[in-house]
Each structure stands twice: as structure tokens, then as C-alpha cells.
């Protein structure tokens, strides 16, 4: 005890700190099961991958499947729609990235980068603004100005490639991870 105001650390001080640290670590470890229990359960994860049969979908038609609780758009595009979507340069788009889970994150938003087979456009039907489901534009009931989808919540307008063209959505509609397991059959997730 050279200086009475700053006493030398004793073995008791060490024990206090060691006990406190062990208790904190223990509480932290014990908290983890409670925190992780709130993550998706195995039953939810089991449904994370689904298969969809596309054979009944007609050209120009969209069918909505359900994937991970979200709507999944599968649209069989007409040659005209594909041509219109290909005519757009990614540099002219609000979001220049493909947002395709099957490609790298920096892939540009060309129409070719948005599909595996040009005829089949597969998208997560969740508006990238605040999560609403955009309405599809068909020949009978056109929506928006770009022939794709229009989100009625806040007016985001998407083209026939699911790319944002006008409105508050910050990103193109996401392309989920999927693969063709038959000529007209896909597995998503």
C-alpha cells in the first residue's frame, strides 16, 4: 500500500472481477437459447424450399405461388414483353443491379440477368419499399405505365422484368434462388 488513495489490487479484487466476468458470460450464454428460439423454427425452415409446376401457365399469364409466406410471382412472358424488357439499358434504370440471388450481387440489371429462361420470370412478390404485394399488369387489366406491376400502396411502377421504373421502391423486385428441375418445373429456395 504505497498510496492510500489507489490501493494495490488484492487477490479479493481479482476474485470479484473473475466472478463478475464468469457470471456475465454465463448469463449471456444462457440468454442465447431464448434469443434463438425466436428465429424461424425447423418446421418453417422445412418449408423454405418448395417446388412449383409451371406447365399450366399460359403465355402472358401470371400465377402466384407461396414461398416462405410471401407471394411468389411466376410470369410466362410473351416474346413482345421480352423484347420490350431487353430494349432497356441498365444504366437508365433507378436500380442498376439484377437483384438475382442466383448471380453475384454486382450483376447489372439486364433482362437476361433477371431470368434463367427468358420466357419464365420468377420473382418474390414483395414490393421493396414497404412489403406490399404489387398488382400484375395484363392485357385485359393494365397496371402502371411499364407493363409489369404496380404497387398500389405507394405507387411503385415495375416493368415486365420486375425492375423498378418509377416510385419510391429502392430496388428491383427480388429474384429468389431457384433452379429448373424439369422443362416446366422449378424448385425455389
Amino acid at each position: 500500500m504505497a498510496n492510500p488513495t489507489t490501493p494495490e489490487p488484492t487477490r479479493r479484487d481479482f476474485l470479484y472481477i473473475a466472478t463478475g466476468a464468469a457470471a456475465t458470460l454465463g448469463v449471456g450464454l444462457a440468454a442465447w437459447p431464448f434469443i434463438d428460439s425466436l428465429n424461424p423454427s425447423t418446421a418453417v425452415l422445412a418449408m423454405a424450399s418448395v417446388e412449383a409446376d409451371l406447365s399450366a401457365i399460359q403465355p402472358g399469364q401470371q400465377v402466384i405461388f407461396k414461398w416462405r409466406g410471401h407471394p411468389l410471382f411466376v410470369r410466362r412472358r410473351t416474346p413482345k414483353e421480352i423484347a420490350a424488357a431487353r430494349a432497356v439499358s441498365p444504366s437508365d434504370l433507378p436500380d442498376g443491379l439484377a437483384r438475382n440471388a442466383n448471380l453475384t450481387e454486382s450483376a447489372p440489371a439486364t433482362d437476361a440477368n433477371r431470368t434463367i429462361k427468358p420466357e419464365w420470370l420468377v420473382l418474390v412478390g414483395v414490393c421493396t419499399h414497404l412489403g406490399c404485394t404489387p398488382a400484375v399488369s395484363t392485357r385485359e387489366a393494365p397496371q402502371g405505365s411499364y407493363g409489369g406491376w404496380l404497387c398500389h400502396c405507394h405507387g411503385s411502377d415495375f416493368d415486365a422484368s420486375g425492375r423498378i421504373r418509377k416510385g419510391p421502391a429502392p430496388q428491383n423486385l427480388a429474384v429468389p434462388p431457384y433452379a429448373f428441375i424439369g422443362p416446366t418445373k422449378i424448385r425455389i429456395g
Binding site: I35, L38, N39, P40, S41, V44, A48, R68, G69, H70
Partner: peptide, 10 residues
């Protein structure tokens, strides 16, 4: 996802 306990509200 953690808050929802699922990929979507359910």
C-alpha cells in the same frame, strides 16, 4: 426474420 419468427408475418 428474427422478429417475425418466419420469413413473412405468420
Amino acid at each position: 426474420t428474427w422478429v417475425r419468427g418466419d420469413y413473412a408475418v405468420g
